[in-house]
Simulated scan of single mutants.
Amino acid sequence: MRMLLVGAALVVMTSAAMMPSALADDDDTKSAQKLAQQGRDDYWHCLAREYSRDSNKGLSEQDFGRSVAGACPSERQYYRVALLDYLTSQYPTIDSSAHLATANRAVEAAQKDIVTAYVKHRTPAK
């Protein structure tokens, strides 16, 4: 009986010792997720400002695409890094190169979306 109580106490102590670590990991993941979302929002807002520039009116799809690809370098990099950090914290067993590829695809998708919106809503050249 005593051995059973000692075993139960060890299980409780081990679980209690692991809990703060698990909670800290969860907090780190939530923090990384918030930073990734903030990075995404900042990048999108910057792309929206690029979309709205008068100097972009009348550009071809290709020219606007090149403009967008070079726009917002600090916001783009922050988004990429924040997303990479989040993916690494969320999926630590997946190779970091896969996370980097995912982050790069997210940046490319944002650029593609803004170019698509530009093409759909631009005023035809006269």
Rank of each mutant, 00 (worst) to 15 (best):
90 Q>M: 11
71 A>Q: 03
89 S>L: 13
32 A>E: 04
68 V>L: 04
59 L>T: 00
68 V>Q: 06
115 V>K: 05
71 A>W: 00
49 R>L: 04
61 E>D: 13
116 T>M: 12
119 V>K: 12
26 D>R: 14
66 R>P: 01
26 D>A: 10
41 D>M: 06
48 A>V: 10
15 S>M: 12
108 E>W: 07
52 S>L: 07
45 H>F: 07
18 M>W: 12
74 S>M: 15
86 Y>L: 01
115 V>D: 07
34 K>H: 12
33 Q>A: 14
47 L>E: 02
41 D>K: 13
39 G>M: 05
44 W>G: 02
38 Q>L: 14
120 K>F: 09
23 L>E: 09
55 S>N: 09
51 Y>S: 03
69 A>G: 00
62 Q>M: 05
68 V>N: 04
41 D>N: 11
103 A>P: 05
89 S>N: 11
89 S>R: 14
61 E>R: 11
28 D>R: 08
40 R>G: 04
70 G>K: 07
39 G>Y: 08
120 K>R: 11
7 G>F: 04
25 D>W: 13
87 L>T: 01
38 Q>A: 15
28 D>I: 04
51 Y>G: 03
75 E>Y: 04
41 D>F: 09
104 N>R: 14
11 V>C: 13
63 D>S: 09
87 L>W: 03
12 V>Q: 06
98 A>S: 01
73 P>Y: 00
63 D>L: 05
79 Y>T: 02
61 E>Q: 12
74 S>I: 14
67 S>N: 15
9 A>W: 10
101 A>G: 11
92 P>N: 01
20 P>R: 06
108 E>L: 13
45 H>N: 09
122 R>F: 08
121 H>V: 02
38 Q>N: 13
97 S>T: 14
42 D>A: 14
80 R>M: 07
13 M>S: 15
124 P>D: 15
55 S>W: 06
10 L>T: 12
69 A>V: 02
110 A>F: 06
88 T>C: 02
114 I>H: 02
71 A>N: 00
7 G>C: 09
78 Y>N: 12
25 D>V: 06
82 A>R: 10
105 R>I: 06
65 G>I: 01
54 D>I: 06
53 R>G: 00
91 Y>G: 06
90 Q>K: 15
64 F>I: 04
99 H>S: 06
68 V>P: 01
59 L>W: 04
60 S>P: 01
46 C>N: 04
119 V>A: 11
76 R>G: 08
93 T>M: 11
56 N>Q: 05
50 E>P: 00
97 S>M: 10
63 D>N: 08
20 P>S: 02
77 Q>N: 12
16 A>S: 14
48 A>K: 10
56 N>H: 08
53 R>N: 09
75 E>C: 01
74 S>P: 03
94 I>Q: 15
97 S>H: 11
71 A>E: 00
124 P>R: 12
123 T>F: 04
62 Q>L: 06
54 D>Q: 11
40 R>Y: 12
85 D>I: 05
100 L>R: 13
79 Y>Q: 09
22 A>S: 08
97 S>I: 08
115 V>T: 13
